[in-house]
Each structure stands twice: as C-alpha cells, then as structure tokens.
Amino acid sequence: MDSKLKPLGLAAIPLLLALLNLQNLANAVPQVPCYFIFGDSLSDNGNNNKLVTTVKVNYPPYGIDFPQGPTGRFNNGRTLHDFIVKFLGFEDYMPPFAESEGKNILSGVNYASGASGIRDETGQHRGGRIPLNEQIKNHQTIISKITTSMGNDSAAKSHLSRCIYSVQIGSNDYINNYFRPDLYNTSQTYTPQEYATVLVRQLSDQLKILYDSGARKFAVYGLGLIGCTPDARSVHGTGTPCVDKFNEGSIPFNERLKPLIDQLNHNLTDAKFTFLVPSGNTTGLVSYSSCCQTGGHNGELCLPDSKPCDNRKQYVFWDGVHPTDTWNEIVAKAIYDSEKPEEAQPFNIQKLAQL
C-alpha cells in the first residue's frame, strides 16, 4: 500500500454519510409519478388569475412568504398540496391548469379554483370560477395530451393508475351556497342532512368519472370547521368561538363522506380511496384571527397592499377564511404520515403512495 494513502479516521464518517445522503437526494425519484389536484381556494395556485371574478388573490400581501410573490395562492405562502408534493419527493409544485402549456404535465396538474364547489351553481355570485365538473373536463384535456406525449393509450393508463388524485372541495357549497339563502334556494329545498346526502352523492358520481378515466389512487378530504373562521365569527358570530349553525351544516357532510370512501374501496377493488380530515397540533399558534387586514367588496380577502401581521408563524388564519403557510404545513405533515384514524383512514398519503 502506498504510504501516502492512509485509512480514513472515524471523524470522517459523518462527512461521508452526509455526502452519500446528498447523492441519494439528488437521485431521488418521487414516490408516485404524478399528483393531480381538484378543489377550491384552499388548493388554487393560479387558476382564477385570468377569470372575471372577485375571488382572485394575485396581489400583495398574498404570497409575501412565497419566493415568487403573489401567484394566486390564497395565503401568505404555500398551500397544503404544495407541502404534500414536496413530502412525496417532487422537485417542483404542480402547475395550475390555466398555465400548464409548456409545463411538465406528466408530473401532475392543479385544477383547483377559488369559490368553486361540487355543485355547478355554487359561488356564481362571485363571478368566474371553475366548478368540479369543469375541472374534471379540464383533466380530460390533460389526459389527451399525456396520451399523445407517451405515444399510446395503454402507457398513459398505466402512468395515470399510479398517480394520486387529491379532491378537496365542498366548503363553498355551504359558504357560497347553502348559507346564502338570499341568493340560493338550497336551504329552503333541503335540510342540512338532506343537503349533505345530495352533495356526497354528486361527489361520488364525480369520483367515478375520474375512476373511469384511469384514476386509481384517491385522497378525498372532509370539511374543516367552517363556522370557526374569522369571517364566520365576524359576520355571523354571537360571541361564541364558532358559528354553530355553520358547523352543524358541514358536519353531516363528513359523516356521509366517510362511509362513501368505505363503499368505494369495497366496490372498486382495483382502486384505493382514503378519507382525510384537515387537522393538526396547534401548539405554538396563538391567534385565530386574520393575519392580514380584510374587508372591502371582497369581504373575507386581504385588502390590496395592506400590511399583514409580523408574527405570521403564530397565526392559524391568513385572511378571513384561508389558513396560513404555517398551518398548511402542520396539516400536510399530519395527513402525510399520520397513524390516527381521525386524520387519515384507512391510510395516510405516504401509504397511499406505496399501494
């Protein structure tokens, strides 16, 4: 042995391990080939920007903590799904459908639209929006492009069958429909229990359309407590922490959605569905009020160019209805690897990716 070559000492082992870890990260492959996002403003990352609507947020202070600034995300930074795609190993966020031309659609697309709902009429008083039915039609456009890109139908179907389809929608069917009796007749037509049944039945049909189009891995979200948002408490509050009638309306939705997921898993045996409930540990978050100044004709949204709070990492809500980047990260982490059935059932996102 050359006397100049000496064995590496123990002190060098951590450095070697770190270098190997960096090499593994550089060569990392996402846990699923693609991730498709369907939903409303909780997931929208720019699809509403070019619509004629009051529900768009491509202005400051939105995006104050996002590297690209205001992009159409309804908070100060990243959405819940931005975090999840990073946990899954994707290098980039999913592009909005409205700006997907020239982007890598093989890795996924975001179809979500602020003010949209399961029902087509939901949110129509706010102007342009893309209801779930139309989002599904937009996905058909993307499927055609993927099929052309991959050269044949069977390759595209194999690709799509391994992707995760995230569906987080329904809040607006209450906030911008059922609880607006001055504009919609749903609350005169249905009791809260009946309305939840109608919504979940329609959502079931929409999920089956995605299934028929090749989807096999579904992450379906329940509703959060919509009566506990700053806007709900400000406009409809009675001095209590939450507006009970809002929560009593949306809770039946979750109670009907969970059995639907069980039923779909039983009937569509070549597919996997999981039910996720946005929740998380609020330790360290001390404020449930809006971080930004809200008001004007957009009500629950931040006033353009207004100065938000400085301690954003301690706030649950960014504006009147949308959570902060910090809260989204907490929720994303919980549903990604949670073993709690009240958060993810029958499995979390990480396990769904492995199936």
Rank of each mutant, 00 (worst) to 15 (best):
M1R: 06
K4H: 14
L8S: 09
N27Q: 15
V29D: 00
Y35V: 04
N48V: 06
N49L: 04
L51G: 05
L51R: 06
R73N: 01
F74L: 08
N75A: 02
G77V: 01
R78N: 14
L80W: 14
D82K: 00
L88M: 11
Y93V: 00
A98D: 09
E101N: 14
G108W: 00
V109S: 07
A112C: 10
A115W: 01
E121Q: 07
H125S: 15
I130A: 00
I136V: 13
T141Y: 01
I142R: 11
S144F: 04
A156S: 03
R162G: 10
D173S: 10
F179P: 10
F179K: 04
D182E: 10
Y184F: 12
T191M: 10
K208T: 06
Y211L: 03
Y211Q: 09
D212F: 13
S213H: 06
G214M: 10
P230T: 06
S234L: 11
P241C: 05
E248P: 04
N265H: 06
K272I: 07
F273N: 00
F275W: 02
P278E: 00
P278C: 03
T283C: 06
S289G: 13
C291E: 05
P304D: 02
W318F: 01
T324M: 01
V331T: 11
D337I: 11
D337G: 15
E343R: 13
A344T: 03
P346H: 07
L355W: 13
